[in-house]
Deep mutational scan, measured.
Amino acid sequence: MQIFVKTLTGKTITLEVEPSDTIENVKAKIQDKEGIPPDQQRSIFAGKQLEDGRTLSDYNIQKESTLHLVLR
């Protein structure tokens, strides 16, 4: 499925993911596309910070959902 990741600069990245993917996985995909190390990424969805060990389905993130990426 496709999800979108919006950065603070307003750029939107499209990722191909599975509901079973962990947040860690997703951060690795963002690193592949953007070169941002996962330890600098904070992902926010529906106002909640997403934890690395959880999966997209844990957070009820579905296709075409938009995550927000904040850098630390």
Rank of each mutant, 00 (worst) to 15 (best):
M1G: 01
M1W: 07
M1F: 15
Q2I: 15
Q2C: 11
Q2A: 07
Q2S: 09
Q2V: 15
I3P: 00
I3C: 02
I3T: 00
F4M: 04
F4Y: 14
F4L: 03
F4E: 03
V5L: 05
V5D: 02
V5H: 00
V5Y: 03
K6I: 14
K6E: 06
K6H: 14
K6W: 07
K6F: 08
T7Q: 04
T7N: 04
T7F: 15
L8M: 12
L8R: 10
L8P: 14
L8I: 11
T9W: 14
T9M: 08
T9R: 11
G10A: 02
G10K: 03
G10R: 03
G10W: 03
G10M: 03
G10Y: 02
K11I: 10
K11V: 09
K11W: 08
K11F: 09
K11R: 11
K11M: 08
K11P: 04
T12S: 05
T12M: 11
T12P: 03
I13L: 09
I13R: 00
I13G: 00
T14H: 05
T14Q: 09
L15V: 07
L15F: 03
L15A: 01
E16P: 03
E16V: 12
E16A: 08
E16N: 11
E16H: 10
V17C: 04
V17N: 00
V17W: 01
P19G: 08
P19D: 06
P19K: 07
S20N: 12
S20M: 09
S20H: 11
S20E: 10
D21M: 10
D21V: 02
T22N: 02
T22W: 04
I23M: 05
I23L: 08
I23F: 04
I23N: 00
E24T: 06
E24I: 09
N25A: 13
N25D: 12
N25K: 14
V26T: 02
K27N: 06
K27V: 08
A28W: 13
A28S: 11
A28P: 02
K29E: 00
K29H: 05
K29Q: 08
K29N: 02
K29F: 05
K29S: 03
I30R: 03
Q31K: 09
Q31M: 13
Q31D: 07
D32A: 13
D32W: 09
D32H: 11
K33T: 11
K33G: 06
K33I: 14
K33A: 12
E34D: 14
E34Y: 13
G35M: 05
G35C: 06
G35D: 05
G35P: 05
I36E: 09
I36K: 06
P37I: 10
P37T: 08
P37G: 10
P37N: 09
P37W: 13
P37F: 10
P38C: 08
P38G: 10
P38A: 15
P38Y: 14
D39Q: 10
D39I: 09
D39C: 12
D39Y: 12
D39V: 07
Q40L: 11
Q40E: 11
Q41S: 09
Q41W: 15
Q41Y: 15
Q41V: 15
Q41D: 07
R42T: 15
R42K: 13
R42I: 15
R42W: 15
S43W: 15
S43T: 15
S43P: 15
S43K: 06
I44W: 14
F45I: 06
F45R: 03
A46T: 04
G47Q: 05
K48E: 12
K48R: 12
Q49W: 15
Q49L: 15
Q49H: 13
L50R: 00
L50P: 02
L50T: 02
L50H: 01
E51F: 06
E51V: 07
E51W: 04
E51A: 07
D52E: 07
D52R: 01
R54W: 09
R54F: 12
R54S: 06
R54H: 12
T55V: 05
T55E: 01
T55S: 08
T55A: 06
T55L: 07
T55R: 08
L56P: 01
S57Q: 12
S57H: 09
S57C: 03
S57G: 10
S57I: 08
S57D: 08
S57T: 06
S57K: 13
D58F: 14
D58V: 03
Y59S: 01
Y59N: 01
Y59L: 05
N60R: 06
I61C: 02
Q62N: 08
Q62A: 09
K63V: 07
E64Q: 10
E64V: 00
E64Y: 15
E64K: 06
S65Y: 08
S65D: 14
S65N: 08
L67E: 00
L67R: 00
L67V: 07
L67P: 01
L67C: 01
H68N: 06
H68T: 12
H68D: 06
H68A: 05
H68I: 15
L69W: 03
L69A: 02
L69D: 01
L69Y: 03
V70A: 08
V70Y: 12
V70H: 08
V70S: 06
V70D: 05
V70N: 04
L71P: 09
L71H: 10
R72I: 14
R72L: 14
R72H: 11
